[in-house]
Computed example of a mutant assay.
Amino acid sequence: MRPFTLTARTLFACMMVAILSSCEDRQTSDLVLQDRIFTQYELSFDPGLDQTTAVAKFSIGSASGDGLELGGNSEITFNGSLLTLGTDPITSEPIYETTFDGLISGGTFLFQDTEGNQYSNTVSMKSVDFIQTPSNINRSEDLTIEWTGGELGASEEMTVDFLLAGSSVSNNPTFVTDEIGATSITISSSDLLSLDPDTYTMSLDRWARPTPTETPAAGGAILLHYQAEPLVVDLD
Rank of each mutant, 00 (worst) to 15 (best):
228 A>E: 02
10 T>L: 10
102 G>C: 01
68 L>N: 07
209 R>Y: 13
17 V>N: 05
219 G>Y: 04
122 T>C: 03
195 L>S: 07
91 T>N: 11
81 S>R: 13
95 I>V: 08
90 I>L: 09
59 S>T: 15
228 A>K: 06
196 D>E: 15
131 I>H: 08
14 C>V: 15
167 S>V: 07
235 L>T: 08
114 T>K: 12
125 M>T: 06
132 Q>F: 04
74 S>C: 02
86 G>Q: 05
220 G>D: 09
176 V>R: 14
230 P>Q: 07
95 I>K: 05
37 I>G: 02
165 A>D: 12
79 N>C: 04
151 E>A: 15
42 E>F: 01
165 A>E: 15
60 I>C: 03
35 D>P: 08
171 N>I: 04
106 G>M: 07
165 A>T: 15
20 L>Q: 15
220 G>W: 04
44 S>P: 01
74 S>L: 01
122 T>N: 11
172 N>C: 02
95 I>S: 04
59 S>V: 10
167 S>I: 05
152 L>R: 11
82 L>W: 04
87 T>F: 00
111 F>M: 01
41 Y>R: 08
205 D>C: 04
152 L>I: 07
124 S>D: 12
140 S>F: 08
11 L>S: 13
21 S>L: 14
39 T>K: 03
90 I>T: 14
61 G>S: 07
100 F>C: 00
118 Q>H: 08
84 T>I: 12
175 F>D: 08
7 T>K: 13
131 I>M: 01
16 M>F: 12
33 L>D: 11
212 P>N: 06
106 G>A: 11
53 T>F: 02
27 Q>W: 03
11 L>H: 11
98 T>D: 09
203 S>Q: 08
117 N>A: 09
44 S>W: 00
25 D>Y: 15
129 D>R: 10
39 T>G: 01
62 S>T: 12
17 V>D: 03
87 T>Q: 09
12 F>A: 14
129 D>Y: 00
174 T>Y: 00
221 A>H: 08
149 G>S: 06
114 T>I: 12
172 N>P: 04
140 S>I: 01
84 T>N: 12
155 S>L: 08
183 T>Y: 02
123 V>S: 03
3 P>H: 09
207 W>R: 12
172 N>Q: 11
114 T>W: 06
234 D>L: 12
128 V>A: 01
134 P>V: 06
148 T>L: 05
186 T>P: 10
115 E>W: 01
9 R>K: 15
26 R>Y: 13
62 S>V: 04
115 E>Q: 12
22 S>K: 12
17 V>G: 08
114 T>S: 11
119 Y>C: 06
53 T>P: 04
167 S>D: 15
149 G>P: 06
101 D>W: 01
187 I>H: 09
157 E>G: 13
95 I>R: 02
8 A>E: 13
126 K>L: 05
133 T>V: 15
186 T>W: 04
219 G>V: 00
204 L>W: 07
119 Y>Q: 07
179 E>P: 07
38 F>I: 03
160 V>G: 11
98 T>W: 06
119 Y>F: 08
142 D>I: 04
88 D>H: 02
165 A>V: 14
196 D>V: 13
211 T>A: 11
107 G>V: 08
68 L>M: 09
212 P>L: 06
